[in-house]
Structures are given as structure tokens and as C-alpha cells.
Lab assay of single mutants.
Amino acid sequence: MLEGKVKWSNSEKGFGFIEVEGQDDVFVHFSAIQGEGFKTLEEGQAVSFEIVEGNRGPQAANVTKEA
């Protein structure tokens, strides 16, 4: 699992980007967020995730919010 911080997200469009130190930003779709209820990410929020190869390149999977 990698750790990063949410660079920005748009809940209306359903995606955002995660900033990882020393690496390119990672695309995240809201379907990759683990948990119940409305899935949102806040700018600056710490997250853990895996990287998978998506249709348009690397993207985050199994995203969990850190406490």
C-alpha cells in the first residue's frame, strides 16, 4: 500500500488526484474509495491505496482514508 494526500477532488464529477511524494500524481475515481455511504475525499486528506493500470494509465484502487 502507498500513502499520499488528496491533491484535489471533485465530488460532482466523481474523481480527483492523490499526491505521492517523489512520484507523479495518481488519478482516483470515487468507485475506488472503500467504505459505506457517500464516498468523498477532502483536499489534503491522508489516504492509503494501491496502484492499478486503468484505461488511461495508472490509477488508485482500494483507497482508504487515514484517521
Rank of each mutant, 00 (worst) to 15 (best):
M1I: 14
M1A: 09
M1P: 10
L2D: 02
L2P: 02
L2M: 11
L2Y: 13
E3L: 15
E3R: 15
E3P: 07
E3I: 15
E3T: 15
G4I: 05
G4K: 00
K5G: 00
V6T: 00
V6G: 01
V6Q: 00
K7I: 06
K7R: 10
K7A: 03
K7W: 02
K7T: 03
K7C: 13
W8F: 10
W8Y: 14
S9Q: 08
S9K: 13
S9R: 11
S9V: 15
N10Q: 05
N10R: 03
S11D: 08
S11T: 13
E12C: 15
E12Y: 10
E12V: 13
G14A: 09
G14I: 06
G14Y: 09
F15G: 01
F15Y: 14
F15N: 01
F15W: 14
F15S: 01
F15P: 00
G16K: 00
G16P: 02
G16C: 06
F17T: 02
F17G: 01
I18Q: 00
I18W: 00
I18L: 07
E19F: 10
E19Y: 11
E19G: 09
E19N: 06
V20C: 07
G22C: 09
G22D: 06
Q23W: 12
Q23V: 07
Q23I: 11
D24S: 12
D24Q: 12
D24K: 14
D25P: 07
D25F: 04
D25Y: 05
D25M: 05
D25A: 04
V26K: 01
V26D: 00
V26P: 00
F27Y: 09
F27M: 02
F27G: 00
F27Q: 00
F27K: 04
V28T: 03
V28P: 06
V28D: 04
H29P: 07
H29T: 03
H29Y: 07
H29G: 05
H29K: 04
H29W: 10
F30M: 07
F30S: 07
F30A: 07
F30W: 10
F30K: 08
S31A: 06
S31T: 09
S31L: 06
S31I: 04
A32E: 10
A32I: 03
A32N: 09
I33S: 03
I33N: 03
I33K: 00
I33M: 09
Q34G: 08
Q34L: 14
Q34A: 12
Q34Y: 08
Q34E: 11
G35R: 00
E36S: 11
E36K: 10
E36R: 08
G37P: 07
G37R: 05
G37V: 08
G37T: 09
F38C: 15
K39D: 10
K39E: 10
K39M: 11
T40L: 09
T40G: 08
T40S: 11
T40M: 10
L41H: 02
L41D: 01
E42S: 11
E42A: 10
E42C: 15
E43R: 15
G44M: 03
G44N: 05
G44K: 03
Q45V: 10
Q45G: 06
Q45W: 10
A46D: 08
A46H: 14
A46S: 12
A46E: 09
V47C: 04
V47S: 01
V47Y: 03
V47N: 00
V47P: 01
S48A: 08
S48F: 14
S48E: 06
S48D: 03
S48I: 14
S48G: 05
S48W: 15
S48T: 13
F49Y: 00
F49D: 01
F49W: 00
F49G: 03
I51L: 11
I51G: 02
V52N: 04
V52E: 07
V52P: 00
E53N: 11
E53G: 06
E53K: 09
N55Q: 13
N55T: 14
N55Y: 15
R56Y: 13
R56D: 06
R56S: 08
G57H: 04
G57N: 03
P58L: 10
P58N: 07
P58V: 08
Q59D: 02
Q59N: 04
Q59F: 08
Q59Y: 09
Q59I: 10
Q59E: 12
A60Q: 01
A60N: 01
A60M: 01
A60V: 02
A60I: 03
A60R: 00
A61R: 11
A61D: 05
A61C: 10
A61K: 10
N62D: 03
N62C: 10
N62I: 05
N62T: 06
V63Y: 00
V63N: 02
T64H: 14
K65S: 09
K65M: 13
K65D: 03
E66V: 15
E66Y: 14
E66I: 15
E66G: 14
A67E: 12
A67L: 13
A67K: 13
